[in-house]
């Protein structure tokens, strides 16, 4: 219980620290909606060219718009923004020392900070996003069933953990190399396309999608969204959730392993 309270304080610390940037967050939330609005406008044009009742890869216009709105929602709730850059900076500058000597696990501390940061961001970003959803409410669809909604929330939480552990693992490279932002951006590019953030993965040719589903990326965003819209049901749903859980465990283990290896060769004085 005591251990738990320790990390609860860390989370609260994360909320406070991040609320300092509330104007910044607000601006980011508003301007982040512009590209999404552009993509939605483009999809409307595509559907207009094919007749309103048409579907693209099994998606109707409303389903497509809902998909992008939910991408925004998940981006607000679970996306890693600059935690990885912060971790890398703490390693590079040696300020990680002050956490390593404390009776606290750095990885769980960072996960708590991440959660706190997301709470702070959500309290600010929620308002522009709600306005955005209201503007598009004609094309917004609810979940296929209450069961799907529950599983969507569960899967999104796993997706949050997965995103965090992937970012954490990449940030751990800072123990070996001076400048990790290049690696972070390369991994981010793969996440951007392979997690379904740019377009629903059903648009890809089927063999490619089959291969992709064995990688961790689709489980960050695509799986929760596919559950919400009922694109994944029955056996596939169970298999998806199992694979997602497996990837969370694998990435958490990998993050821990790399951190232990890194700390062994790490030497920083002062800090």
């Amino acid at each position: 219980m005591k251990t738990f309270r320790k990390y609860l304080y860390a989370m609260w610390f994360g909320v406070q620290m991040n609320l300092a940037y509330r104007v910044n967050f607000f601006a980011r939330a508003i301007f982040g909606l512009i590209p999404i609005a552009a993509v939605i406008a483009m999809w409307k044009t595509i559907y207009a060219g094919q007749g309103q009742q048409s579907t693209v890869a099994g998606y109707s216009l409303s389903e497509m718009v809902t998909y992008y709105i939910l991408i925004c929602v998940l981006d607000m709730l679970i996306a890693v923004h600059d935690d990885d850059l912060q971790i890398a900076r703490e390693i590079r500058e040696g300020t990680i020392n002050q956490f390593l000597v404390k009776p606290m696990d750095y990885m769980w501390f960072r996960l708590s900070m991440f959660t706190g940061g997301k709470i702070a961001y959500t309290t600010v970003a929620l308002w522009p996003l709600l306005t955005f959803i209201l503007l598009l409410k004609n094309n917004f669809q609810g979940p296929v069933s209450s069961q799907a909604l529950a599983l969507f929330v569960f899967s999104a939480l796993l997706g949050a953990c997965l995103q965090f552990f992937i970012s954490y693992t990449v940030a751990m490279l800072a123990f070996w190399v001076l400048e990790v932002s290049t690696f972070i951006f390369i991994v981010f590019a793969f996440e951007f396309i392979a997690s379904g953030r740019l377009f629903p993965l059903d648009l890809l040719p089927s063999p490619l999608l089959q291969i992709l589903m064995w990688s961790p990326f689709p489980y960050e965003l695509y799986l929760p969204l596919a559950i919400y819209s009922g694109k994944v049901t029955g056996f596939e749903l169970v298999r998806g959730l199992l694979l997602q859980a497996a990837w969370v465990c694998i990435m958490a283990g990998l993050a821990r392993l790399i951190m232990n290896l890194g700390i062994k060769r790490f030497s920083a004085y002062g800090g």
Binding site: M42, T45, I46, G49, Q50, V56, A57, T182, F185, I186, A189, F190, F192, I193, L198, F199, L203, L204, P205
Partner: peptide, 23 residues
């Protein structure tokens, strides 16, 4: 990094045009 991000844009356009002739 820049090449990967550019490739991503090109891939996006290619995928879109798998499903439509014109936008």
């Amino acid at each position: 990094v820049e090449l990967v991000w550019f490739g991503l844009q090109v891939a996006f356009v290619s995928v879109l045009y798998l499903h439509t002739e014109e936008i």
